[in-house]
Design a protein around this nucleic acid. Structure first.
Lengths: 136, 136
DNA sequence: ACATTAAATGCAACGGTGTTGCATTTAATG
DNA sequence: CATTAAATGCAACACCGTTGCATTTAATGT
């Protein structure tokens, strides 16, 4: 299913920037930093990019995978809807190539702390990705 | 031990802003967002605050507990040195009062994923803190 | 194919943060 | 009290988040 169909299926108008965002993020299969999205989509006004990202987060197409040093990494949601966001996955950042990816886990990670009710858990792991390990 | 002594012990000059930062963060016992630090320390130039935070992170006094929506939360390091950063703790953000705190765990959380070497893990939990639970 | 309309877009503008260079001040030392 | 390396304040620039408003466009019905 291509980008326009995905948008239609979820009741969103098919616009150039939405298709471009989905394609840009689909290619890489990794989380993209805002700065890179901005570059790739520099044809569009940055306000439009900003607002489009808001909409697509709200509709459950994408999510913020990581905020680090002022840069925000966005990733495609493979299992989220506008209502339910499943986050049984880990965000992994490679210290060498700076790539960020979503890793899905078989078993959800649980955590319980006395007196506090925990609703969501986000996990960010850092290390060396498989590609960079081979390169060294 | 008061702020000036802490600074001396770690080989840092005792300056007003460093003392002020340590005291501001010591009082609250919680992570402070940059925006609030900025307000509390508005006597000082913001560049000085910026550079002082860099130094204090580097020396292991404080760490970034959370970056969210462009605001960075800083917390005192209770078990970190300039060489070793222990992060067997969870950063917890209350969705009601927006407070952020470091929770220390008895047992470190481990995570292993094939083909990837993980060096550090950061966990951010969100929910309702004990105080807000009582209030409701 | 065309008109209608709500939604999407582009532009301008403002405030906040990250960052750097440079001149001045200050804390630690002898 | 003099010396000096470090810390500070100021200026400046780029980038991001955000909002208002006028214009354009995608979807819908005729």
């Amino acid at each position: 299913m291509d980008a326009p169909d995905i948008l239609k299926n979820r009741g969103l108008k098919v616009t150039k920037i939405r298709v471009a965002i989905l394609e840009a993020m689909g290619e890489s299969r990794q989380a993209l930093p805002y700065s890179e999205l901005q570059k790739k989509l520099s044809i569009f006004d940055r306000t439009t990019l900003y607002r489009t990202l808001l909409v697509m987060i709200d509709k459950g197409f994408i999510h913020k995978a990581l905020e680090e040093n002022g840069d925000t990494y966005y990733a495609l949601c493979s299992s989220c809807t506008s209502k339910v966001h499943n986050h049984n996955h880990v965000h992994f950042k490679c210290k060498e190539c700076s790539s960020v990816q979503c890793l899905y886990l078989q078993n959800e990670i649980g955590l319980s702390i006395p007196e506090i009710s925990i609703e969501t858990i986000e996990i960010t792991a850092k290390g060396t990705c498989s590609l960079c390990r081979l390169t060294n």
